[in-house]
Amino acid sequence: MLKVNDKELNFTGSIKELLDYLKLNQSSCAVLVNGEIIKRKDWEKYLLKNDDYVEIVSFVGGG
């Protein structure tokens, strides 16, 4: 089980595959795994492991 933005998700594969699966706009998001930022260029080769804590973030209006 992965934890993605606090939701449990049964998924195996790379970060890129996870984002495809979630149908996210990849140009505007950043990904952290277990608190570490994973650079975009590494998304394809970075394989997610069981129990990884994934956070997907984007920009919103803010002061």
Partner: peptide, 17 residues
């Protein structure tokens, strides 16, 4: 200025600011 937030996984994805 802009802020960073987690994406809601079940919401329809709007464009980023």
């Amino acid at each position: 200025t802009v802020a960073v937030r987690r994406i809601g996984l079940n919401t329809k994805h709007e464009k980023s600011v």
